[in-house]
Design a protein around this nucleic acid. Structure first.
Lengths: 351, 351
DNA sequence: GCCGATCGTCGAACCGGTTCGCGTGAAGTG
DNA sequence: CACTTCACGCGAACCGGTTCGACGATCGGC
């Protein structure tokens, strides 16, 4: 059931069938209907590979996703969902590419073998060889995240510096003086993940501005690491009264650690950070946080990519988002003795 | 940079290059090396569309995912991740197909246009027209989930009946007599989602066996609905001392509702269910639950599909999984007055 | 020294679409 | 009635691979 078969049954040539379908040349109403009837009858659909071969477009975009190794954070997965849906609206399919350990292999697969018309990249690093490579090839790509020098690129980013700073100011305004920062895993920080770096920068600078006493921690992407991290925080400085986290997967562990240390949230200890609303609303008490607008970002990335595909010479565009902090229930004014533990609880002592 | 260009530079014919690469006919060591040098020099990779057109295989599998509409549960997203990784190990790419509102359109896109060699389907319904359609076409597909009559099909399933029953027995063994069941949204139950139906069946039967007093509820896939659902549970029967949930997205809301009603978990109220371990470990106290082995299921589904693709006449195979309940911290023996509220709390009265 | 097998390579056809250039018949015009 | 004009449809070439049949060279056997 190929185009030749349709042509034969409709008594026309293959090219006429093609033109009838694409509308790129006029076809008389009679023939069009004759062809359409045969097509409907046989349930014909043009072969995607053949079409891609002939006109050089696959109508597929690649979603290059993270070297996460073993597991995915909720945020990454939210991007996948939103990108797929946005792409479907433009009649594009989405090809998943785990740019895993050997990022080269699946990367080459997408580009070298021309499986996709364009790509969306996630988990951007400050120095990202993948993006440099794509830019050198002038391959249509859009990054979710931005490098150290994003000028002239196509991307959708979150202003992690501003968001982390906003968290600090929120806590400082509530009177907290000793706060901790819970970052993504050290491995990712060392790899240069932009959210980890810019978030840390924003936190550090804002804390310095407000004259706060701070400590920063890296923490694995799972509840157990969150629990361990919180124990370290209270061990290193029992007078800590608040924390800011970028690590949503650790959130449950952080809360559990606070419960085990008998610090009631938010009465004794405030928690805030940059976290997808799905997670912020799952924990009890709900997290006051800058909600990562994953859905919007995925949609915007697709919008940009489609624009770039449709207009190859269009000037580069980008979106930098900085959602406001959603006030929920996990932060409260610091206790009466700002530099020490809350009154009436007896300062914890070092073990 | 196509195969002709390589052939020209290596001073051989196009077919020789093809054979040198595929190894389907012997090529002398000299020529092979000559060709390989040119290929390395130019960084040539064969065009995927052309290859697919010529030999009829795209080396891509379709992942048909749910009509979720607006949002994805963690479990669905876990499947996407594990399927993608397992497929990469077999050198297959994964094409995402949101079989959204008009399941036909993207479905036809995958099959009719021959974009994929095979498909993995998620969110199976007891009567699933998609699977019937595929079976009629003898199209290589594997379901994650099983229909009412899965005989002779290819699938990877979870024994929801057994799991829900195990939860009930666990609670009954602890002395609970009045328990509630929190299902997925009513809309999904009506649509015939197998997990919702089989889970409900398993719960109901096991509860009858043990002579328990039960009520069952449907609940939206979000924390707010979980909170509302819990309020309804306690309103309908304040003597309820435990619940079983299939709804992981609502979990946070259920816990919050219990906290607001001053029911301490697990002292006053036990919670269990069928939930991915990622979520079970995030809440405090951690959830005693049958962990959905999403990663394993995705991998098995890919294994089956690849087997089916490699051996078109292989007999149908399947895997029915029934992971044990992981004992964590959310269940405890019922209070001294099994049929009423825990002693010392004063029985809540109907409003 | 001739013959048949074997090895390596080549040309051509094919997969299923798209697109370009051209031919043909009908309509319009002086 | 002859001549242009235009709408419509056709055939052929092409996209970039794979695969089949055939052909020339090399080799061993008698």
């Amino acid at each position: 059931m190929n185009i030749g078969e349709i042509a034969k049954r409709a008594g026309v040539s293959r090219s006429t069938v093609s033109y009838a379908l694409s509308g790129k040349r006029p076809v008389s109403e009679d023939t069009r209907q004759k062809i359409q009837r045969v097509i409907d009858e046989l349930g014909y659909r043009p072969n995607a590979s053949a079409r891609a071969l002939a006109n050089g477009r696959t109508n597929t975009i690649g979603l290059v996703f993270p070297p996460a190794g073993n597991h995915y954070t909720g945020m990454q997965l939210d991007f996948i969902g939103s990108v797929t849906e946005a792409a479907a609206a433009y009649d594009y399919d989405v090809l998943l590419s785990p740019s895993g350990v050997d990022s080269d292999r699946s990367f080459q697969r997408l580009l070298g073998e021309r499986r996709v018309d364009g790509a969306i990249l996630m988990e951007i690093r400050l120095q990202d060889d993948r993006l440099e490579h794509l830019a050198a090839l002038n391959f249509p790509a859009v990054a979710i995240g931005r490098t150290a020098h994003p000028e002239g690129g196509w991307w959708v980013g979150l202003d992690h510096m501003a968001l982390a700073a906003a968290c600090v100011h929120h806590l400082a305004d509530l009177g907290h003086r000793r706060i901790a920062f819970v970052n993504r895993p050290e491995q990712l920080l060392r790899a240069g993940y932009e959210s980890a770096h810019r978030g840390l920068d924003g936190f550090t600078k804002a804390a310095a501005e407000r004259g706060l006493t701070v400590r920063t921690y890296c923490c694995g992407d799972d509840p157990a690491s969150g629990l361990a991290c919180l124990e370290r925080i209270l061990h290193d400085d029992p007078a800590t009264t608040a924390l800011v986290t970028l690590n949503e997967a650790a959130l449950g562990g952080l809360y559990r650690g606070l419960a085990q240390a008998d610090r009631h949230v938010p009465r004794d200890f405030s928690v805030t950070g940059v976290v997808a609303s799905r997670w912020a609303e799952t924990v009890t008490p709900q997290l006051t946080a800058a909600d990562v607008p994953a859905e919007q970002m995925g949609r915007l990335a697709v919008d940009l990519l489609v624009e770039r595909l449709d207009h190859p010479d269009a000037p580069a565009r980008h979106h930098l988002l900085a959602p406001p902090i959603s006030l929920r229930a996990s932060t409260a004014p610091a206790g009466p003795a700002p530099a020490g533990p809350p009154a009436g609880f007896g300062a914890p002592t070092h073990p």
